[in-house]
Amino acid sequence: MKLRITDPTAIAVDREILSLRAEDSTGSFGILPGHADFLTALEVSVVSWREADGKVGYCAVRNGILTVSGGTDVAIATREAHVGDDLQELETVVLAGYRSHVEAERTGRTAAAKLRMQAIRRMVEALQGGPSEIGL
């Protein structure tokens, strides 16, 4: 099978593999040659694969989309990819960083939604001649 992992700036992995393991919201799963066409959203996790020479490869991904086409092509598009040989480092250092990015993005979206709601309330109050009309 052909594996290609890309992020917005680069192709992180482009090689022939025998098998792949990844993780989506339902848990861990495997892909072997001949797999049915497949599409899933990946979690922050480490994707692993086995090459023809028996070597195991690892790539930490910050979410993403995995597709299998024709049972021979596996493609992963992710926000961020970090290839490494040390599984322990990827799981502790890199994934922790990815998770903190995800949490910061979530916090930012929540704060932006609150600001939009405050602005809408003030506009409605101003249009109705309410108390915030003077404060604007």
Rank of each mutant, 00 (worst) to 15 (best):
Phe38Gly: 05
Asp73Ile: 13
Leu95Gly: 07
Leu18Trp: 07
Trp49Pro: 00
Val94Arg: 03
Ala75His: 13
Gly64Ile: 02
Ala41Gln: 08
Ala113Val: 06
Ser100Ala: 15
Leu3Phe: 08
Gly135Ser: 13
Glu91Arg: 12
Arg79Thr: 03
Gly108Trp: 04
Ala96Ile: 04
Arg50Trp: 00
Val61Leu: 01
Ala104Gln: 15
Ala96Gly: 13
Gly135Thr: 11
Asp85Leu: 05
Val56Met: 09
Leu66Met: 15
Ser48Phe: 02
His82Lys: 10
Val124Phe: 06
Ala52Gln: 13
Ala52His: 09
Glu16His: 11
Ala81Tyr: 04
Asp85Glu: 14
Thr78Gly: 04
Asp73Cys: 07
Ile17Lys: 09
Leu136Phe: 13
Pro8Ser: 10
Leu3Cys: 10
Arg99Pro: 03
Gly64Phe: 00
Asp85Pro: 02
Ala36Arg: 12
Arg21Ile: 02
Glu89Tyr: 10
Ile31Ser: 02
Thr110Trp: 10
Ala96Phe: 02
Val61Met: 03
Gly129Arg: 08
Asp73Trp: 06
Thr9Lys: 13
Thr67His: 06
Asp37Gly: 11
Ile5Pro: 03
Ala22Asn: 03
Met1Val: 12
Arg62Glu: 08
Thr107Lys: 14
Leu136Gly: 12
Val124Lys: 08
Ala75Arg: 15
Leu90Trp: 00
Thr78Leu: 05
Leu18Pro: 00
Arg121Pro: 00
Asp85Cys: 00
Val94Asn: 04
Thr72Val: 10
Thr92Asn: 09
Ile120Ser: 12
Val94Phe: 03
Ile5Gly: 02
Glu80Gln: 14
Tyr58Phe: 15
Leu39Pro: 03
Asp53Glu: 11
Val47Pro: 01
Met1Lys: 07
Ser28Glu: 15
Glu103Tyr: 05
Leu95Ser: 07
Ser45Phe: 01
Arg62Val: 01
Val46Asn: 01
Ala60Asp: 05
Pro33Glu: 15
Val13Gly: 04
Glu91Ile: 00
Ile120Gln: 12
Lys114Trp: 09
Arg122Tyr: 09
Ile120Thr: 11
Ser100Glu: 14
Glu103Asn: 07
Ser19Gln: 10
Ala119Asp: 12
Tyr98Asn: 04
Thr78Cys: 11
Arg4Thr: 15
Thr107Ala: 15
Cys59Gly: 03
Asp7Tyr: 06
Thr6Ser: 14
Thr107His: 11
Glu89Ala: 10
Gly27Asn: 06
Asp14Cys: 09
Ala60Val: 05
Ala22Pro: 01
Asp7Gln: 06
Ala52Lys: 14
Arg116Ile: 00
Asp37Ala: 14
Ala119Gly: 08
Phe38Lys: 06
Phe38Trp: 11
Ala77Cys: 07
Thr92Met: 07
Ala112Ile: 08
Leu42Trp: 02
Met1Phe: 12
Glu103Ser: 10
Arg109Gln: 14
Ala77Val: 14
Val94Gly: 01
Glu16Asn: 13
Ser19Asn: 09
Ile31Ala: 11
Ala104Glu: 15
Val124Pro: 01
Gln128Tyr: 09
Gly27Arg: 10
Arg21Phe: 02
Tyr98Val: 00
